[in-house]
Design a protein around this nucleic acid. Structure first.
Lengths: 342, 342
DNA sequence: AACGATATCGCAAACGTTTGCGTAAAAAAA
DNA sequence: TTTTTTTACGCAAACGTTTGCGATATCGTT
């Protein structure tokens, strides 16, 4: 069975009028008599006519569709961002096309290209971990298509951005660890080329410095997924004897580390305190509940979409790029001890 | 700045040839001389020409895009399915448009309509919990657009489907609970109108029957989210004294229940055994680790996309609808006791 | 009766692409 | 040289929609 949705031409032919008359009748153009208008509307209703969005976009040179490029939707943080984006987009009559880069540069490039091919009106993107080349975004920028980065942004290109204050968050939670008595804090960080990785590391170092704690290079590891934690289990277990705290770059890594440590007989937080980043749902579900930083993903998504919308609607009058910074909120739970001092 | 991507006509004008010549040159049509072809290709490369996917879809009457309607991407099961779908789709040159119904019928109807408006070649859908009207899917079916349901399927319409053997899974895990000594097993189920809810309930009842355990109506509750668990906390705590096992319709509900029970002083699994459904990542991260059923979301997504692809490619020669049933695998972990008998 | 005004509609171009067909010029065959 | 074939390109329609403009009627005015 061939799937032919009825078009304006079909209606025109069936009713013995021209396509332009049908088009005008359907949108209540005054040039059309009431009789014809009603006839056409009734028929369109009957055959369940729906305008072809592709033809419309082509004609209007506007797709009312925006593209999203995100590392992986399986991560709660990203899927909440997407929900935030979608809710705003829907309410303004926009649709979204979601692409996953799977943390892979090549895939990210393909994604961007495909979205451009589909003539999205704007782009919302979060960089993949492996992105060290920005030409695909540069060409988007040069072609004048509005683009806003969120979370993992591209500082090489001057666009709107929505970010977390990673530095401050890391400083805050590391300070909390120190205040609760930790002195030898292991940092499980992410790729150094990631801006957020840099910021969180710097925040961690700043907190140590704030409290006159000497940083120990051996206690800074690149290890940012549960899989990597398990891969480097021996290393972790060996380190465990000499540390009293862990600050992991995200919650799932923190939880994985905790799992291993507890199996090795360490008590959390008595022997070792643990802190994460992101306030993933698991943080609240595990026992002991994970101390972490709340990142307001949904709101960040909303904000990103709003920034983009302003560009799409008042195209001309925004010249400077804008940066929205979300302050992560400290969620002190059970994997860290109560403050030892004020 | 206006965003005008260069078209075939732009190239034609710039080079003083016709649009048809450009079109043919770019796809190595033999009618075009090598000189012209090279000239055109070089220019196209220089200006970074990319065909307009909208125009192509309109012309070819094929969008090579498939629509996905899913309740919520924040759930790991659904986002794994999407990944499975995407990977197959990409490898065959298809794109996907993802929509969330947020478990809401009206939104689901809008989603379907929007996807049809964008002339997707096919539909992959998982019903929302509140869907009790299927006319939007019926009209898709009647218009001849291939559609395959997954997980939460619509048995009112005769389409391809990819499902989990919910009955068998529920029977399996309930049997495991009984075998490990449980006799008064609370079932936290979902909406009765959901087919999977029915199946899991029936599987639970069947297992009781298999073991000559009398079912207790008071022990069958509709409660399928952590939020609902917390809302009905008092009820749950009161019941807790009289039960020795819980079978929840999904893992997050199981974990939430466990959290409350432990806070009330119950020991898991000594006092109460707990089992979930789905093998969410949290199942493996919490302590004690949750006994559950593995649902192969990624593979289900792949299978669904493959079924759809067969319809899209050999349009004609598939008449009967096909059903792929995935057997969930029992993951016995720490929230249930070891088998008491064989 | 002749005129202008208004109401109601169709034509055609445009968006970007593909493709059957026609055609001019060049090459090959007679 | 004439005829036929081949080479290499352009025209125009089509996909579905919108919209400026032109074209008929019909009406009301003198």
């Amino acid at each position: 069975m061939k799937a032919h949705l009825t078009s304006i031409n079909d209606i025109a032919k069936a009713l013995g009028v021209s396509a332009s008359t049908v088009s005008r009748a359907l949108k209540d153009h005054p040039d059309i008599s009431e009789a014809t208008r009603e006839k056409i509307k009734a028929f369109a209703e009957k055959v369940n006519y729906r305008p072809n969005a592709l033809a419309l976009s082509l004609k209007k040179q506007v797709s009312r569709t925006i593209g999203i490029v995100v590392p992986e939707i399986v991560h709660h943080f990203f899927s909440s961002i997407i929900s935030g984006i979608e809710d705003i987009a829907y309410s303004k009559g926009y649709r979204v096309m979601i692409c996953q880069s799977n943390e892979d540069l090549a895939r990210e490039q393909m994604n961007v290209q495909a979205l451009l091919d589909h003539r999205v009106d704007g782009l919302l993107v979060c960089l993949s971990k492996s992105t060290n080349d920005f030409n695909h975004f540069l060409s988007v920028y040069r072609s004048g298509i509005p683009m806003v980065f969120f979370d993992r942004v591209c500082k090489e290109i001057d666009t709107d951005r929505v970010i977390t204050d990673d530095f401050n968050g890391a400083r805050l939670i590391t300070s909390h660890l120190i205040n609760s008595g930790c002195r030898r804090i292991l940092h499980l960080g992410t790729h150094p080329q990631l801006h957020i990785g840099q910021e969180r590391l710097q925040g961690y170092l700043q907190a140590l410095n704030d409290h006159k704690v000497t940083p120990i290079p051996e206690l800074i590891l690149r290890c940012d997924t549960p899989a990597e934690v398990h891969a480097r289990k021996d290393e972790l277990v060996k380190l465990a004897k000499s540390i009293d705290g862990i600050f992991a770059v995200n919650d799932s890594t923190a939880v994985a580390a905790m799992q291993i440590l507890r199996n090795e007989g360490f008590s959390i937080p008595r022997d070792i305190s643990i802190a994460g980043f992101g306030d993933d749902p698991i943080a609240d579900m595990i026992d002991p509940q994970l101390t972490t930083l709340e990142q307001q993903g949904y709101q960040m998504g909303q904000e990103a979409m709003n920034l983009l919308l302003e560009r799409l609607i008042d195209k001309q009058d925004i010249t400077e790029s804008r940066v929205k910074i979300f302050q992560p909120e400290l969620k002190i739970r059970k994997t860290t001890r109560a403050m030892a001092m004020k």
